[in-house]
Design a binder for these strands. Structure first.
Lengths: 232, 232
DNA sequence: CGCAATCTTGAGCGCCATCAATACCTGTGG
DNA sequence: CCACAGGTATTGATGGCGCTCAAGATTGCG
C-alpha cells in the first residue's frame, strides 16, 4: 500500500465518521473524500482564530479541540469541546456572520477540511446533508438555550452536578475522566476554578464522589447526585 | 373582493414578509401561499406548549409572541421575542428534538402555518430555503452563545446597558419602547424585576436615561451608555 | 374613576468572585 | 527511577453583587 492510497483511506475514514454524511453510499463517500484534505495540528496550536478568513468545513478526525470566545475582560469562555466526528466552521459557509471564536487543539489533532465551494457541491447533490446540518445546529441551539437557563436560575452546585451526570452518560462509566483542565470547565460552567474545587470538595465530603489525580472522578452515589439536580 | 380572495391576499403577504422566502418569484410565492393557512390567537393565548405535537412551521404575520422555557423552580425564562416575519417550530420539522418551549401571544396575533410535509416540498423545490433556515439558526446560535458569555462574565448593569443600546438600534430611535413587561425582560437578562428596576433608577439618577410611563425609556446620553459596556 | 397589575424602593443576607498562600500533581531530564 | 520545577489545584479570608421578602407607589385598563 503506497503513501497515496494510505492518505486516501485516512481521509475516507475521516469523512465516514461524520454524522452529516452517514447515510451516503460508499461511492459517494469516496467522491467526498476526494474533495477533502487533511491537516495536523500539535497540542496547543490554534486551528482557527477570529480574524482568520474562514472558508472550510473542519471535521475532527482524531484528537480533541476546544472552541472558546474571549470575554471583554480577556477571559476564555468555553463554548464547545470537539471530539472525533464533530465539525466546525459551518456558520461561515452559509452566512456572513463573522467568526468570533478560537479553536485550539487540546492534543495532537487531525482535521479534515472541505472547501466552501466543494461543500456546496455536496449539498446540492445530497439535500439530506442540509438536513443533517440543520439537525446539528438545532441540537446546539437547544443546548445553548438550556445553558442560559442553568446559568440564570441554578447555583453552581447544581450546574456541576448535572455536568458530572452528563459526562458519566457520555463516557458510559461512573469513573469519569474530566475532558480538560478545571479552568476550562469552570468557564464552561460559568464559575471559577476555586469555586468548582470547593464544590467538588463538598461532594467528596458527602461521599457522593471520590477524586483521584486531578482529572479523575469516581461517582459513588449517582442517585444523590441526581437528587441535587432535581431538588432545585 | 370576496372573502376568499381577501384570505388569499392576507396569506400572500404573510408568506412574502418572511426572510426565508424572500428571493422567490411571485408565482412561487403564490404557490407557497396556497400551501399555508392562517390562524388567529388572542392576547395571552398559548400558541404552542411543550407537549403539543408539533407539525407546522409557524410564521408571525401580525402581533407579538414570546417564547420561553420553564425553569425547574417554575419561573419563566424568556428565550425569544417574535415579531412579524419571524418563524418558529422549525426544529421539530427537521429532527426528533422534543419541544420544551412555550409560545404565548403577547397581543392579538395572526400566524401562518405550513404543514411539515408541505414545507418539505418547498425545501426540495427551492434549496435556497434550506440556506435561509440555516442562516437563521446560525444567527440564533450566535446570539445564544453571546448571551451565555454575558451572563457568565458581565454584571447586570452592563447587560442592561447593552440591551438598551441594542433596542435603540433595532427601533432606530433614542426613545425606546420596551417590548414587554419588566418581569419578562428581567428573565431574558438573567436577573429579577427588582434589580432591573434599581439599575434603571441608577442610570436615571446619572442622567443617562429618562423613564416615563412604565415602558418608555429616553436615552439622554448614548455615549455614556456605551461606555458602561466598553469599560467592562 | 377605581382597582388590579405592575413597578419601585428598602432591608438583610447568602452565594460566589477575588486575592493570596500553600499543596499537589505530572512529566521532564538527569 | 527519582528529583525537581512548572503548572494546576486546593483552601482560607473577605467583601460585594444581586436575590429574596416585604411594603408602598404608580400606571393604565376596564
Amino acid at each position: 500500500m503506497d503513501a497515496h492510497t494510505e492518505e486516501k483511506n485516512f481521509n475516507h475514514s475521516c469523512v465516514s465518521i461524520v454524522p452529516i454524511f452517514n447515510k451516503l453510499e460508499h461511492e459517494e463517500l469516496t467522491w467526498i473524500t476526494e474533495l477533502s484534505h487533511s491537516k495536523r495540528f500539535k497540542k496547543n496550536e490554534f486551528i482557527l482564530q477570529p480574524l482568520d478568513s474562514y472558508n472550510h468545513l473542519y471535521i475532527i478526525h482524531t484528537g480533541k479541540v476546544k472552541v472558546f470566545r474571549m470575554t471583554e475582560s480577556g477571559n476564555e469562555q468555553l463554548t464547545r469541546l470537539l471530539v472525533p466526528g464533530d465539525f466546525m466552521g459551518e456558520l461561515a459557509l452559509f452566512s456572513e456572520i463573522t467568526n468570533d471564536s478560537f479553536a485550539e487543539a487540546l492534543s495532537d489533532t487531525e482535521v479534515c477540511m472541505i472547501q466552501r465551494s466543494d461543500f456546496q457541491k455536496i449539498l446540492l447533490k445530497h439535500p439530506s446533508t442540509y438536513m443533517k446540518v440543520i439537525e446539528e445546529l438545532s441540537r446546539r441551539l437547544d443546548r445553548a438555550e438550556k445553558q442560559v437557563i442553568q446559568l440564570n436560575t441554578q447555583d453552581v452546585e447544581i450546574r456541576l452536578a448535572s455536568f458530572i451526570i452528563e459526562l458519566s452518560k457520555v463516557q458510559e462509566t461512573l469513573r469519569i475522566i474530566l475532558p480538560t483542565s478545571k479552568k476550562d470547565l469552570a468557564s464552561y460552567l460559568g464559575t471559577t476554578q476555586e469555586t468548582m474545587s470547593r464544590k467538588l470538595s463538598t461532594l467528596e465530603s458527602k461521599k457522593i464522589i471520590k477524586r483521584s489525580g486531578q482529572r479523575n472522578i469516581h461517582i459513588l452515589d449517582l442517585q444523590a447526585l441526581q437528587q441535587i439536580v432535581d431538588a432545585s
